[in-house]
Design a protein around this nucleic acid. Structure first.
Lengths: 334, 334
DNA sequence: TTGAAAGCGCTAACAT
DNA sequence: ATGTTAGCGCTTTCAA
């Protein structure tokens, strides 16, 4: 049978010293005779004692050294890269990361967030879903620090780290226009999603700046997954006047677009917001609006750390640049 | 300025009731007059009270409802899929997941693991690095539950969820042999890594079973990253008698192999252990030994849950099957 | 239906 | 150099 967990009292009894002496040894406070310390350490080892961090934190009023991370999907490489960036920064401060997926579900996001508050995490990093974040106000009021990532919160003011979605989308279209394209399509995610809206804005702006009109029949939004994207791109390619190039609003959409273009053996050129793995060896070339998603996590975590260290300046908004990776062949299309 | 966090005592004072009454309301114990409860709830709202879960857990001696997950790299899709699988199972039990990356570093793994024990997680899910896990014995002794994922621990007995590495590698080689290949190369990771050893075993077994010899010059191990893999495959292709097919021991190696074969415009056929994203639209076809990594996480989490529910049977070993995805063209090579 | 007192495992603030 | 007492925020136990 497993023994129950020994406490400092158990160690003290076993070593024949007081509780406080054990505490001193465990915390390396010095001021303990070497022999005494040795006896305590022996007891610690033989009992298998390990300090209860929750109890320590409760009494010492120190922080929990845990931060909460709420993302859309832990399994999605974009978000797991964010998680990794957060972890890298927090590791240097000896903070652990409790991570959870909201699955683009507001209720779940809220539930997760509040569970994390109950655990008294030192701060919260959230890729927000939807627009309702007032439920966080009481938490912010009592000193919880929150940094939003990738999308702004709906109805509160808070620190925020974003990508340059408009600029990135703009550069994607510029890239295609420079190659001679005038009939450029866009396939994007749901307009309820901030990044989808912003990228759509960049797309439209760039076309207008280039003196092209935005052809409504070439804009398809509300596309959530690769399978739908593939179908939608097939539809675009089957138009009487098909687009000569397509801007894919994210990596899932790009994956579907690549499949459709490959299957149709079309010459349609592709640019994707988000880079694709192995993009350099696909049977269909795809340029990309690229960036390091881990940077989003790192910058957000750094911002959080500054808050934890007492920075009380007004909420900040950090916008990270993207860069265009040109993978389209030299001969321009029309 | 931010107020400090209100406690139950604060709520009690504000509502003009005792601490215990607040506790009753917060816990929905009933046995409280409706008016009293309303007064308490008003106070809770106006003060922004949220119960401190750490304090609750300390006193009630319930579990922390957090599990620890130690993987190699949160940003690697294979491991983040494991994390997602774990999360799915734990969510149903209202448990949170603290996740960390070991980066294949034993010291870091140990450090992380012990931090998690200090936080009194209910259980630990570990993709182990290296062979030294005796440091966990005291924890196991006092009732910590540990399930290992993807690789066995070195020197202790514990629950374990693995892939069928030998069988998967065997099926990969069978696939190539059936296509007429006799000169099959393998590029694998470091033999210090369990999965690399097992896959190498499956590779050798299959060749022997097929009546081929294992040509030492065609076996390259110790390859950690895609860039090295690409170089190594270039070397293989430049041999006087190059292989006609290559078995890539994991997805990073496969990525490098695809690049090398594409660049060399070689007809060399590829099979990868681990599937690749967009494998269906690569310029070089790649068959794959496929499986759902999230299953590893789910099964491990389920095993852990059974332990938490009191199952004290001897350590279990679960082996998950793989399946071969054939993407090579119909005309066989030689 | 409500409350007072004790205590979870630990540290802080004082002793000695 | 070591120990004693109180108390972190909560639940448990027992009493009213």
């Amino acid at each position: 049978m497993t023994r129950s967990r020994p406490t400092m009292s158990d160690v003290a009894r076993s070593a024949g010293v007081s509780l406080k002496t054990v505490s001193r040894v465990v915390n390396g406070e010095g001021a303990v005779r070497a022999e005494t310390a040795a006896a305590v350490n022996d007891a610690i080892r033989s009992l298998g004692f390990r300090r209860n961090e929750a109890a320590r934190t409760l009494r010492s009023r120190e922080r929990s050294r845990m931060v909460g991370l709420v993302i859309k999907d832990l399994a999605n490489p974009f978000y797991s890269a964010i998680a990794r960036g957060v972890e890298e920064v927090m590791r240097d401060r000896n903070e652990l990361v409790i991570a959870g997926s909201s699955d683009e579900d507001q209720a779940r996001e809220r539930e997760l967030t509040l569970l994390l508050c109950e655990r008294r995490v030192d701060g919260l990093l959230i890729v927000p879903t939807g627009e309702l974040h007032r439920y966080l106000l009481p938490e912010l009021d009592v000193g919880m620090h929150v940094v939003f990532i990738d999308r702004p919160p709906g109805d509160i003011e808070a620190d925020l780290v974003l990508l340059d979605n408009v600029g990135g989308a703009h550069s994607a279209v510029d890239h295609l226009v420079a190659r001679g394209h005038r009939r450029v399509a866009m396939v994007g995610d749901d307009m309820a999603i901030y990044t989808a809206r912003e990228r759509w804005r960049g797309f439209c702006d760039a076309l207008v700046d280039a003196g092209c009109e935005v052809d409504e029949t070439l804009v398809r939004v509300g596309v959530h997954d690769a399978v739908t994207a593939e179908r939608v791109v097939h539809e675009l390619l089957a138009l009487a006047e098909p687009p000569t190039a397509i801007f894919a609003g994210n990596n899932r959409i790009a994956a579907g677009a690549v499949r459709a273009v490959a299957a149709a053996r079309a010459a349609t050129e592709l640019v994707s917001f988000d880079d694709l793995e192995l993009a350099d060896v696909l049977s269909v070339p795809v340029s990309a609006v690229s960036y390091d998603p881990a940077d989003l996590g790192r910058r957000a975590a750094e911002l959080l750390c500054r808050r934890l260290d007492g920075d009380a300046s007004p909420p900040q908004r950090v916008v990270l640049p993207t860069r265009l990776v040109d993978r389209l062949p030299l001969a321009a299309a029309a």
